[in-house]
Simulated scan of single mutants.
Amino acid sequence: MTKSHEKVKEADLVSKEHEEYLRKIKSTKRRIVITRILILVSFIALWQIAANQKWIDPFLTSSPARVIKSFVSLYEDGSLFKHIGVTCYETILGFSLGTILGVLIAIILWWSPMISKILDPYLVVLNALPKVALAPIIIFWIGNGMPAIIVIALLISVITTIIGVLSGFNEIDKEKIMLMNTFRASKIQILRYLIFPYSIPIFISALKINVGLSWVGVIMGEFLVAKNGLGFLIVYGGQVAQLDMVMMSIVILSIIAFIMYEVVSLVEKRLVKDKS
């Protein structure tokens, strides 16, 4: 009876310690979120105060109030969501195609070590080459318009995806591959049951990197050829000295890019949970 009571007390103690641990984790997460919000609110308030007090030139740096005014102006004339929609469409398409194509090419290179060794120096050169230099050529080949912008976004992300995913494939424990070969597993089975499950962190990392790279490619393309989109608004605002429009476009870009990154993070959590 005494031992039974001791076990019950130990279980209660462990349970209380576990609850305290979970409480601390939640408290820490809450403090992090609150701190982030306070930093953002403080930055916006300081920006507005500095503009009102003329510590900074509101014409050059704009202000939150002027950014909101510009946002409302574009919303009222019906063009705001058109520009946002065009840029989001181009970014999501370039992001998706770059990621899918990069993963497929990485699979082909993993499947055939000979092809991988042949193409390795070319991948290194293409990765080191500034993609901005290719933009005028792509525009000349494809023409002014959305397809050229999507291709630019694709090219910026696809090489990075290939190199990152292929490196992840090649880092899989060789002994595990040898074990599956011992059981006469086919390459498709090795890819499906070993390579893919162990490469989930690599895929997620590639997605997170491609979020930023896709935005870079799309905005760069819109700077050069677009007649719609947030990149176009930035260029147009600079040309007509409407820096409020420029700052508003940058703020919107930041918000949408953050949302895309958070979506990828949610996918990561779901995949990790399913894997567990």
Results as ranks from 00 to 15, higher is better:
Thr2Leu: 08
Thr2Pro: 04
Glu6Gln: 03
Glu6Arg: 08
Ala11Thr: 10
Asp12Gly: 02
Leu13Ile: 12
Lys16Val: 10
Glu20Thr: 06
Glu20Pro: 00
Tyr21Gly: 11
Leu22Tyr: 06
Lys24Trp: 13
Ile25Val: 12
Lys29Glu: 12
Arg30Leu: 12
Ile32Asp: 05
Ile34Pro: 02
Ser42Glu: 06
Phe43His: 15
Leu46Trp: 05
Leu46Gln: 04
Trp47Phe: 09
Ala50Thr: 03
Ala51Met: 10
Ala51Pro: 06
Asn52Met: 15
Lys54Trp: 11
Asp57Ile: 11
Asp57Ser: 14
Phe59Lys: 13
Thr61Asp: 09
Thr61Pro: 07
Pro64Gln: 06
Arg66Lys: 15
Val67Lys: 00
Val67Asp: 00
Ser73Arg: 14
Glu76Leu: 15
Gly78Asn: 04
Gly78Ile: 04
Lys82Leu: 15
Ile84Ser: 03
Gly85Leu: 12
Thr87Ala: 05
Cys88Gln: 12
Tyr89Arg: 13
Tyr89Gly: 11
Leu97Glu: 09
Gly102Trp: 09
Ile107Tyr: 09
Trp110Phe: 13
Ser112Ala: 08
Met114Asp: 06
Met114His: 09
Leu119Ile: 07
Asp120Met: 06
Val125Arg: 11
Asn127Pro: 01
Lys131Gln: 04
Val132Pro: 02
Ala135Gly: 02
Pro136Gln: 10
Ile137Asp: 03
Trp141Lys: 11
Asn144Val: 13
Ile150Tyr: 00
Val151Lys: 05
Val151Trp: 00
Ile152Asn: 03
Ile152Phe: 07
Ala153Ser: 15
Leu155Lys: 04
Gly164Gln: 00
Val165Asn: 00
Val165Tyr: 00
Gly168Phe: 00
Phe169Glu: 01
Asp173Ile: 04
Glu175Tyr: 10
Lys176Ile: 10
Lys176Gly: 02
Ile177Gly: 01
Arg184Ala: 07
Ser186Tyr: 01
Ser186Cys: 02
Leu191Asn: 01
Tyr193Pro: 01
Leu194Val: 03
Leu194Trp: 01
Pro197Asp: 08
Pro197Glu: 08
Ser199Ala: 07
Ile200Pro: 01
Ile202Glu: 00
Ile204Asp: 01
Ser205Ala: 14
Ser205Leu: 08
Leu207Tyr: 01
Ser214Cys: 14
Ser214Thr: 13
Trp215Val: 00
Val216Tyr: 07
Gly217His: 05
Val218Phe: 06
Gly221Ile: 02
Lys227Phe: 13
Asn228Val: 11
Gly229Thr: 07
Leu233Gln: 07
Leu233Lys: 10
Ile234Ser: 00
Val235Leu: 03
Tyr236Trp: 15
Gln239Ser: 14
Met247Thr: 03
Met248Ser: 04
Ser249Thr: 07
Val251Cys: 10
Leu253Cys: 14
Leu253Val: 13
Ile255Ala: 08
Ile255Ser: 05
Tyr261Leu: 09
Val263Ile: 13
Val263Ala: 12
Val264Pro: 04
Ser265Arg: 13
Val272Met: 07
Ser276Asn: 15
